[in-house]
Lab assay of single mutants.
Amino acid sequence: SLSVDNKKFWATVESSEHSFEVPIYAETLDEALELAEWQYVPAGFEVTRVRPCVAP
């Protein structure tokens, strides 16, 4: 099958004044980091952490 098993990760994104967490959907932690950097670094943010979303 061609289905992709995307998992939810939380990326911590920082600017000079703010820090916030955004959801990233990817297959692996490395891919989540790449996606977060691709989305947020060009906008002037720094991705400081990516972690798996742990269900309660």
Rank of each mutant, 00 (worst) to 15 (best):
A32K: 01
W10R: 03
H18K: 10
P52Y: 13
W38G: 11
S1M: 10
A43I: 08
V47T: 01
A32C: 06
N6D: 06
V41C: 05
G44V: 00
V4K: 14
E14S: 13
E31F: 06
V50A: 02
A43D: 08
I24T: 00
P56H: 11
N6L: 15
A43Y: 14
Q39V: 13
E27G: 13
E17A: 08
E46P: 02
S16Y: 08
H18Q: 11
D5I: 14
T28H: 05
S15L: 06
K7Q: 08
L29N: 03
E17C: 09
L35F: 08
E14A: 12
T48D: 02
W38K: 15
V47Y: 01
A55N: 10
P52K: 06
L2N: 11
D5W: 13
Y40Q: 03
F20V: 03
D5F: 14
Q39K: 12
E31A: 12
E37F: 12
R51C: 05
E31L: 11
Q39C: 15
E17T: 14
V4H: 13
A32G: 01
W38T: 13
V4Q: 09
A32Q: 00
V54A: 11
L35R: 09
V41H: 11
P23E: 13
V13I: 14
D5V: 15
S19D: 03
E27V: 11
W38Q: 15
W38C: 07
V54C: 09
S16L: 08
E14T: 14
L35M: 09
S1C: 15
R49H: 13
T28Q: 03
E46I: 15
S16N: 10
V4I: 12
R51N: 04
S1V: 09
T28N: 09
V22T: 04
G44Q: 02
Q39W: 14
Y40T: 05
F9W: 14
E17I: 08
W38Y: 12
A11S: 01
F9H: 01
Q39H: 09
S19Q: 07
L33G: 03
E46D: 06
K8Y: 12
T12R: 12
S16W: 09
E31H: 10
S19G: 03
E17K: 10
I24S: 00
V54G: 08
P23K: 06
A36S: 03
Y25V: 04
S15E: 03
E31V: 05
V50N: 00
N6I: 15
W38P: 02
E37M: 14
L35D: 02
R51P: 00
E34D: 07
E37W: 13
L29C: 15
E14G: 06
F45Q: 00
A11Q: 00
D30P: 05
S3N: 10
A11K: 01
S15K: 10
P52E: 14
D30G: 09
F45S: 04
V54L: 10
S1D: 11
L29D: 03
V4G: 12
R51Q: 05
G44A: 02
A36F: 04
A55F: 11
V50E: 00
Q39A: 11
T12S: 05
R51V: 10
E46Y: 12
A43W: 15
E14H: 10
N6T: 14
A36H: 01
H18S: 09
A32F: 02
S1R: 08
L2M: 10
V54K: 11
E27H: 14
T12P: 00
T12V: 05
V50F: 03
